Simulated scan of single mutants.
Amino acid sequence: MNDEDRKPDMSLERQRRLEEELIDAYDEELEMEVDDRILDGDAAFTDEARSTRRLYFKELFRLQGELVKLQDWIVHTGHRLVVIFEGRDAAGKGGAIKRITQRLNPRVCRVAALPAPNSRERTQWYFQRYVPHLPAGGEMVLFDRSWYNRAGVERVMNFCTDDEYEEFFRSVPEFEKMLVRSGIQIVKYWFSITDDEQEIRFQSRIDDPLKQWKLSPMDLESRRRWEAYTQAKEVMLQRSHIPEAPWWVVHAVDKKRARLNCIHHLLSQVPYHEIEHPAVALPARVHHPDYIRQPVPAEMMVPEVY
């Protein structure tokens, strides 16, 4: 088979991947609905693919049930948990975070996704702006990128000096050890994807108007500087992998496998158990014979278009 013969197959595979990316962007309930239609009626999906996707949802919902138990245990014990998600742009960090938080109480499980530092924050102690987001007792905080920005994007894009970069690596082990000594558990994940996979995901964002907002000039520049990011990642993992807060690498080329593996591993890192709750009984509504419900003015009602 020559190169010309391979081109149509490569084009079909690319189209299939772009369609998968589109489906994957939907929220879980809508994704399930779309998948059901595909699983039941699209002959292009093999029996193996249908079976794999059904297993994904079965395991996802099971693991989300365990996350609810973890949440109850965290509240009951006053445990403090920090989970750091790092990785290249489009590595799937946000998708994993969404599946973790989807069934949880946002007052217990919070996401911290800080923007670029402002002019005042740039003059502060580097870790200072992250400290207010650390968990109190009975809380779990997921950092969608973290203080490791300095080891990644700031290093690659020359947003920090060499001295600031070296000071970060002198400080970050001590900072994390201090947090652990204070009772905060830290779990750090690096989501790893290939060069080809990032290209596909970026192209999907370009082609999908609902996802174009995810692409920033910084994302596009990061694509050009792939090798510089690789080198920065390697240094980061080497210099900040400590026993008190080790790094864990998630193979993330397959998004769905990555989500399941990450959630399964996170659950294994915490010694949680199911907390018994008293049975919930719905109280009877109290009726007052002199109560008269006031009508709502028609102009206040939302039009029933659907």
Rank of each mutant, 00 (worst) to 15 (best):
E164V: 00
T194A: 03
D208L: 00
I186C: 03
Y189D: 05
D208A: 02
Q185M: 14
E174N: 13
C160T: 06
D162T: 12
R155F: 06
S182R: 12
M218Q: 11
L179Q: 04
Q212N: 13
M178G: 14
I206M: 13
F202C: 05
R181T: 11
F175H: 09
D163S: 15
M218K: 09
F202M: 06
S222M: 06
E221W: 07
T161E: 01
I184Y: 07
I206E: 11
S204E: 03
T161G: 03
K214H: 06
R205C: 00
S171R: 11
Q203Y: 12
E164G: 00
R181P: 02
F202N: 08
K177R: 15
R224I: 11
M218V: 12
G183T: 00
S182D: 15
M218S: 12
Q185G: 12
I184S: 06
E174V: 11
W213R: 09
V187A: 08
E197Q: 08
T194W: 01
K177M: 11
Y165S: 11
D195I: 09
E199G: 13
E199R: 15
M218R: 10
R201I: 01
R155C: 07
S171M: 13
T194I: 00
E197N: 06
S222E: 04
G183L: 01
V187F: 08
S216T: 14
S204P: 00
K211R: 15
Q185R: 15
D162F: 11
F159V: 06
E167M: 14
I193N: 06
T194K: 05
R224M: 10
D163T: 14
R224D: 14
R201E: 01
F169N: 06
R170Q: 14
N158M: 11
E199W: 11
S204I: 02
E167A: 14
W190I: 03
E174Q: 13
R170Y: 10
P173Q: 04
K214E: 07
F169C: 07
D207C: 07
E167R: 15
R223N: 06
V172R: 11
I206Y: 12
P209N: 02
R155V: 05
L210Y: 14
D195L: 11
E166R: 13
I193K: 07
P217A: 03
F191M: 05
L210F: 12
S222Q: 07
D208P: 00
F191G: 03
R155Q: 09
P173K: 03
I184V: 13
E166K: 12
F159N: 08
L215Q: 07
Q198N: 05
I184N: 06
F169D: 07
P173C: 01
F202A: 04
K214I: 02
E167S: 14
P209I: 00
F202K: 09
I186H: 06
S216W: 04
D208C: 00
L220D: 08
F202Y: 07
I206T: 13
L215C: 05
R155W: 07
R170E: 15
Q185A: 15
R170P: 08
D163P: 10
V180P: 00
Y165V: 09
R223Y: 02
R223E: 05
F202S: 05
P217Q: 03
P173F: 01
T194M: 01
